[in-house]
């Protein structure tokens, strides 16, 4: 008997809204909320080798005996027509002191090329303490045809870094920008 049906098979408006909005909210969460949170997370934790930045030369407590070897690496993405490499392959640095080094890049084509270098520091636990005062990676680089440029980098390894870390490597990957 249909009239005996006590099942509440009319879905209320509120229940409908909940049922439909839950998936929509999760979609919005995935596309619009997760990526920015991820970026902030990487910046705070140094996750994925995201390096830090300092605005001005600060004074750190310096232990002269402590030494860390910083190695420099360079890569270019496939199809990026620029020869790119560090001027020196590695440096002995004292944590807390500022150092300057540079990378050299040469455009091998007859056209103007624009690119940007993305840094990464390994090991991850060092990334948070590897700070840059100035870096060519902060800006996009414009290469005139066959131009060779020297791009400088000023950095510090903060003394708060774990003492067990003796080697830090910094690598740059050059990407092509369209405009």
């Amino acid at each position: 008997m249909v009239t005996d049906m006590k099942q509440n098979n009319k879905i209320t408006k509120g229940f409908w809204i909940k049922l439909v909005s839950a998936p929509i909210l999760m979609f919005v969460f995935a596309v619009f909320i997760m990526p920015p949170i991820y970026d902030v997370f990487c910046e705070i934790t140094g996750f994925n080798g995201t390096t830090g930045r300092v605005e001005a030369e600060q004074q750190y407590e310096v232990e002269e005996e402590r030494k860390v070897e910083v190695s420099f690496f360079a890569m270019t993405m496939p199809g990026f027509p620029v020869q790119f490499g560090p001027k020196v392959n590695s440096m002995q640095v004292v944590p807390g002191k500022f150092y300057t080094t540079s990378y050299i890049a040469k455009n091998n084509t007859d056209k103007e090329v624009i690119g940007q270098a993305i840094p990464s520091v390994a090991p991850t636990d060092a990334a948070l303490y590897f700070k840059k005062l100035e870096c060519f990676c902060f800006n996009r680089q414009v290469f005139k045809p066959h131009e060779e440029i020297e791009m400088s980098l000023r950095f510090v390894v903060e003394p708060e870094m774990d003492e067990r870390i003796k080697d830090v490597s910094l690598s740059y990957n050059f990407f092509k920008l369209e405009s």
């Binding site: 999760m26 995935a30 596309v31 997760m34």
Partner: peptide, 14 residues
């Protein structure tokens, strides 16, 4: 399903 499938949809949309 309601929590996870939209995230997959988000991933493929990106």
């Amino acid at each position: 399903l309601i929590g996870a499938m939209p995230v997959l949809a988000g991933a493929v949309t990106m």
